[in-house]
Nucleic acid binder design. Sequence first.
DNA 1: TACACTTACCGAAACGTTTTGGATAATGCG
DNA 2: CGCATTATCCAAAACGTTTCGGTAAGTGTA
Lengths: 336, 336
Amino acid sequence: MPTIKDIARIAGISVTTVSRALNHYSDVSAKTKKRVFDIAKEIGYVPNRSAQNLVKRKNNTLAIILSGLERKGGKDNIVYQLLSGMYSYAESVNYEVVLFTTSSAHQKEKTYIQFCKEHNIGGAVLNGIRIDDPYFHELVNSDLPCVLIDVLAEGGNTSSVTIDNIEAAKDAVAYLITQNHRTIGMINGRKEADVSIQRYKGYIKALKQHHITIDEDKIIYADFDEVKAYEKTKSLLRRYPEITALFCASDMMAIGAMRAIKDINLRIPQDISIVGFDNIPLSEYTTPPLTTIDQDFYKRGAEAAKQLLKMIQQEKVEKNIFLEHKLLARHSVHML
Amino acid sequence: MPTIKDIARIAGISVTTVSRALNHYSDVSAKTKKRVFDIAKEIGYVPNRSAQNLVKRKNNTLAIILSGLERKGGKDNIVYQLLSGMYSYAESVNYEVVLFTTSSAHQKEKTYIQFCKEHNIGGAVLNGIRIDDPYFHELVNSDLPCVLIDVLAEGGNTSSVTIDNIEAAKDAVAYLITQNHRTIGMINGRKEADVSIQRYKGYIKALKQHHITIDEDKIIYADFDEVKAYEKTKSLLRRYPEITALFCASDMMAIGAMRAIKDINLRIPQDISIVGFDNIPLSEYTTPPLTTIDQDFYKRGAEAAKQLLKMIQQEKVEKNIFLEHKLLARHSVHML
DNA sequence: TACACTTACCGAAACGTTTTGGATAATGCG
DNA sequence: CGCATTATCCAAAACGTTTCGGTAAGTGTA
């Protein structure tokens, strides 16, 4: 592999000058500069990133730390879109993205910080990390810039990009109420998850605003899991046949719920109306197409990368960025 | 950031010994070794990957070069699954994965080889690369180990992991024939794509085996695109109302076709039977659920990584690995 | 006791860059 | 002409690690 030394030797100049030529410094004549580039091209010179990073003590690399890159995890496409958005922004500013998963971290007993420092990484975007993960706190409390997806930023050098989950959930439930539903169950995610808490609040808020009594028993937690949602919905609907509508904290759970509804011989939306959350690609193809809360994960990823870059460059940033959401009325809700 | 020098200083030993202790060499006493690790932990030492890579002249990194990581590209989940499988294998053998996209390559005028060499990458997995991409040939003809997804390997230091696309397509079409279909259209992908060619061959083969006359006009090319498939299917079915079944070279196109069928007021499967290809998550949720050819992209990714690693370690490998496929009969095919 | 081994350690070079702090020669200006 | 300025270039140090080729002390053996 040719190096700048080779170029220097061939051109009969110093490595300093070669380096400066390659980096477009102004103190090298146009002639030598051209010479250097010609030789570089001819001998197939490619800069060695490791050497560059070593001396520059930085990397132009962003990390994305994901809770799951698992076999069956990608059905909702969220991680993909996040990644895609993040990647596209990073690329536009000449940064690279490297992945790290929580599972591999714990398996190798390597904390997120260790990973980032080892790779000289400028900052990290975190998605789907459990707030009871000790590595998570270590990272967030460090000085490394972090941007969190979907959980509000607290201390440290962190910020977040989310949507207003309370408002979004409220919109969803309010919509059901305008369609004259009064007995609305909720399929929530994990009790500990930030988004679950927010969406719960939104659900409550909507009911309160319309003076509907709240029944905590009609709220179930299905771990954002399709199969669990299927099972728990079945028993929920059996227990409370008066329920006419369901608000689900994720589309995947909504899909599980839809199957449950059909399996106990109820019709969607005539017997049970249902609204999801996320607007994943799948939601458009269910029968009937799912009414849901649209949020743009691609944009979220891009925005997170943008935010992270600002933080790395020590610019002032808002602590929490809220992106838009909107209710997407398809055909899974029926007016009573 | 603490370095091994700091450890050496604190422990009162040489950096050589620290390095050798950290790397579990046998010529350092148990006592000093423990000392080194204790100090490392205490001062929060993290090895600098750039420095390591520089001196070791390698990286423990695999590249995956993708044609698309685009906003709307991920609907079929294939890239995600590939990535996920590849990542999981790489992780298990302590390798890392870095992404590179063809679009960013061309935009930055940086060839795939350049990218790989710059990053000291051991080898690359390529997915969805067009065979008329000049960078592709440059890479494949280089000495860098490459494994291709879905296109047979030719010269150079390359191998491939695919399924037997001819056989798979034949299975799909033969299945339609056993259900007494005799006028079967085909929605194929891109004319130039290797898989399209193979699947075309399989389609022909099945028809010939059952002595059905072939009508090239009933084969259309929709670029693996849902919308194009929608439009082209519409006109195909209008032109040839005698068609009773469609074989699609991808599920995404099948989904577009299904919408077209419904939009011209035909029923699936009673009027038109349809079989797809890929078994993407979506295919399970369409109405009716899509009969398709199942292939395991997660496994494909893992297998590709495995293969690549062998090549990097100079082990002998088979040129082309064929993974299993199977016909998944759901409900989009009707017996005549 | 003399010798060969083994064990535990170390100095210095190397990896390929960038950067610092000049040096040298040419040019402009009064 | 002398001085300051500018345009080019360069030597050497630095980044953090691994590795090569040792050395010195301790151990076992004849």
